[in-house]
Structure formats: structure tokens, C-alpha cells
């Protein structure tokens, strides 16, 4: 499955999971779907039959509230049977509405923001100390980047020259109460990330070729970690909900679900 086909499938499965569970956060789950697709189709080294393989690349989803599309990705990649996803947010299931390390393929439980990058720094630093070649990838959200702990970790990552670490910011520019730039303005974002001495690549987070090239550049960059500032659209793919605050909370009703699946099937 190439990354475009994978992204489409991730979105369809995610929509079904969120609809069935009447869950929130579909907006952020869809905005990062292309990033997940490129990572799992073309970048990450992993073996779904051996999730604890020592040589696997490590992936952390820091914005744990958008785990639906991450779980969908893990299911599609074969970490568990697709029927396992029916348990999403259901009584007794391990598929919580925030990323859980009890799910095969997941490295770190998240939910509280600002945790993924510091831990990612530790994994990457440990890999260097152990002379291991695996790489570490962390997806954070833009709201996530308002947490001070992430800026501490940006300082640490640069100080430790963690060129085996790649941070991806899903910059969909909407958080709980509205537009990110009206709540805590992160701009000039790229300049800040550059100033923190990371190799910062700004791109369209839905452009698979751009993402692939950026991941390649990250791998080739020595002496500093890479951050991909991925401009994305909240709820990308659900036409009527794209770039809306509503998509942060809203779960599709029956009628909307029909339209959503039509949108995503195109």
C-alpha cells in the first residue's frame, strides 16, 4: 500500500471509529493522517509481528487525544486484527481515547500535553549512548507546543545534538477555544524553531512528496535534530468540517457520517 492509499484508508477507518464511539477530536486525527501515512508507508522501520524489536524506529504521538488515526494506522499495518478497533472507547477495551502503551505498537501513553518530546529526547539520547541506529519520531500538536516542557526539550535536543530525532508539528492552527494565534500565538514559529538550533523544515503537511523529502533530509542532517513544521488543515478530508473549531469536539451524526464517508472515499 503506498502512502496515498494508506492515508485514505486511515481516514476511512478513523471516521468509522470516531462515529461508532461518538468520540471527540476527529479534527486533529484527520489533520495528521498524511503524516502518519508517510511515516508508516515509507519511513519507519518496524515489524508488527515483533513490536518490541530492539532495532525498530520509535514513534511517539504526543497529542494523545487524536489517537484514533494512530490506532487505525497500527491496525492497518497489522499490529492487531482490524476487529480490535471496534473496541475504541468501549467498555473494557484497551483502546482508550488517549494513546495507551498497553496497545501493541505504542511506545508511550500520552494525553497530558508536553510529554512526548522530552521522552523522545531520552530515547534518542539513549540510542546514541548505546550506539544503536534506530531513529525516534515524535508528533506534537500546535496546542501541545504551548507547554513549557516542550521548549525545555527543544533546548535539550539541540544541546545533545540529537540528529536521530525528528519532531513533526501538526500545525492545524486550531485548539480548544479557537485559533492558535488568538490564544497563544506561536508565530513567528519557524524562526523560533530555527533559533532553538533545530533543522526546521516548513511544508504542507498533506503533501506526501514534501514529507518524504523532509524525512530524508532529517536522516541526512548531522549534528542537530530536525523539526518538520507541517502546515495542516484541521479535519482534512471532511469537507464541511475542514478548518473548523467544531471539528475539535464534534462527532459525526448519522447524516454527517454518510457525507463524511463519501468525502473520504473520493
Amino acid at each position: 500500500m503506498n502512502s496515498v492509499e494508506l492515508a485514505k484508508k486511515i481516514r476511512l477507518v478513523t471516521a468509522e471509529m470516531v462515529y461508532k464511539a461518538s468520540a471527540s477530536h476527529i479534527g486533529g486525527a484527520l489533520s495528521m493522517a498524511d503524516i502518519l501515512a508517510v511515516l508508516y508507508a515509507d519511513v519507519l522501520q518496524f515489524d508488527p509481528n515483533n513490536p518490541s524489536d530492539d532495532n525498530r524506529d520509535r514513534f511517539i504521538l504526543s497529542k494523545g487525544h487524536t489517537c484514533a488515526s494512530y490506532y487505525a494506522t497500527l491496525g492497518i499495518m497489522g499490529y492487531f486484527p482490524m476487529s480490535y478497533l471496534d473496541g475504541f472507547a468501549q467498555e473494557g477495551s484497551l483502546l482508550l481515547e488517549h494513546t495507551s502503551h498497553y496497545v501493541p505498537g505504542v511506545e508511550l501513553s500520552t494525553g497530558s500535553l508536553g510529554h512526548g518530546l522530552p521522552v523522545g529526547c531520552g530515547i534518542a539520547y539513549g540510542a546514541k549512548k548505546l550506539h544503536k541506529n534506530y531513529r525516534t519520531y515524535v508528533i506534537v500538536g500546535d496546542g501541545d507546543m504551548e507547554e513549557g516542557s516542550n521548549w525545555e526539550a527543544l533546548l535539550l535536543g539541540a544541546q545533545l545534538k540529537l540528529d536521530n530525532l525528528c519532531l513533526i508539528i501538526d500545525y492545524n492552527k486550531i485548539q480548544c477555544f479557537g485559533r492558535t494565534n488568538e490564544i497563544i500565538n506561536l508565530e513567528p514559529f519557524k524562526e523560533k524553531l530555527d533559533a532553538f538550533n533545530w533543522n526546521c523544515i516548513e511544508l504542507d503537511g498533506h503533501d506526501h512528496d514534501a514529507l518524504r523529502n523532509a524525512f530524508k533530509e532529517a536522516e541526512q542532517t548531522k549534528g542537530k535534530p530536525t523539526v518538520i513544521l507541517a502546515n495542516t488543515i484541521k479535519a482534512k478530508g471532511w469537507k464541511s468540517m475542514e478548518d473548523t473549531l467544531f471539528s475539535h469536539y464534534h462527532s459525526p451524526n448519522d447524516e454527517e457520517y454518510k457525507q463524511l464517508m463519501e468525502d473520504l472515499s473520493k
Binding site: R58, E107, L108, H115, L117, P118, V119, G120, C121, G122, I123, A124, Y125, G126, A127, K129, L130, K132, S149, A153, L156
Partner: peptide, 9 residues
């Protein structure tokens, strides 16, 4: 967080 990551290794 860094300690947690190191311990994971």
C-alpha cells in the same frame, strides 16, 4: 522525560 526515554532503552 529524558530519564524515562533512557530507561526505555
Amino acid at each position: 522525560g529524558l530519564a524515562a526515554g533512557l530507561a526505555m532503552g
